[in-house]
Design a binder for these strands. Structure first.
Length: 265
DNA sequence: TCCCAGGCTCTCT
DNA sequence: AGAGAGCATGGG
């Protein structure tokens, strides 16, 4: 397919920031201006110009079925961001306006953030890319993220080439629990924290991974993942009053996370 | 080289 | 209940 679909550049949208702010790990630059990646089994090349977002190898059906929701175009970020009255948050938004919470696939989000634990972003990307290259499907461009069904059949030894370290057993355990129903995404959507963090032991899913899965895999924008960077922010800036972010804590968190990481000493 | 990374599990108090 | 070591690996 060689179609191209274009939309006017939305307000409060920055493609590079959305794809490279640490919430999704499979997007990379195809060349100087075009990003490419895979979501929901579709390979996409995409770029931002001064006036448009250009979706390559994409038609109107794909846009409406997948990318419109994926990039969260229907949520009014201008309104949300304008409601924040914390000075650090305002600084972060001024510098990085255009971050949106992508609506990723639940399994990909869960698996990716299991891999993320005690790890750095470049290495997370490497592990995930090797995972997809080895066990994903698809012929054109990048391979899709491997399904839980596929991963559930693997052994720790099978995963050794991706070099996930101690996380390999967690990946497999999570996949098996997704497949056998111990972890039901239908139930998780109601209450992921209880289901994953409390009822399913020994799988490398604690509060932070669960919050990330809720935020990025289910678009629960009230979720608030606390990692080392957010702890750092809290400690350094006595940000105790997040009342202004009530209900959209996850969006505020993503701006603060990226801002703090980009402004590290 | 050495510290650390979008944490979690296990053990010891 | 809470604190702290250990964990695989490699980026910077």
């Amino acid at each position: 397919m060689n179609n191209t679909y274009r939309i006017p550049l939305p307000k409060n949208f920055n493609l590079s920031l959305c794809l490279d702010c640490g919430q999704a790990f499979r997007w990379s630059l195809f060349n100087e201006s075009i990003w490419h990646g895979v979501a929901f089994g579709k390979y996409l090349k995409i770029e931002q110009t001064d006036t448009e977002i250009v979706f390559h190898n994409c038609d109107e059906n794909d846009f409406n079925a997948i990318w419109k929701a994926y990039f969260d175009f229907d949520l009014d970020y201008g309104k949300i961001l304008a409601s924040y009255d914390d000075e650090h948050l305002i600084t972060a938004i001024k510098e990085f306006d255009g971050i949106r919470i992508l609506r990723q696939e639940p399994w990909e989000a869960l698996c990716s953030f299991i891999i993320s634990q005690n790890n750095n972003i470049p290495r997370i990307k490497g592990i995930i890319e090797r995972l997809c290259d080895a066990f994903g499907t698809g012929e054109n461009g990048k391979k899709s993220f491997p399904s839980a069904e596929v991963i559930s059949q693997l052994s720790v030894e099978d995963l050794s080439p991706i070099r996930a370290g101690f996380r390999a057993k967690y990946i497999i355990d999570a996949a098996q629990k997704v497949v056998n129903g111990d972890v039901s995404f239908a139930e998780i959507e109601k209450n992921l924290l209880n289901l994953v963090a409390k009822n399913c032991k020994n799988q490398g899913v604690g509060a932070k991974v669960a919050e990330c899965t809720l935020l990025y895999g289910f678009h629960k924008i009230e979720a608030f993942p606390v990692d080392v960077w957010v702890k750092r922010i809290m400690a350094e800036m006595y940000l105790t009053d997040f009342e202004c972010t009530k209900g959209t804590e996850g969006i505020a968190q993503q701006y603060l996370f990226h801002w703090r990481r980009m402004n590290d000493r």
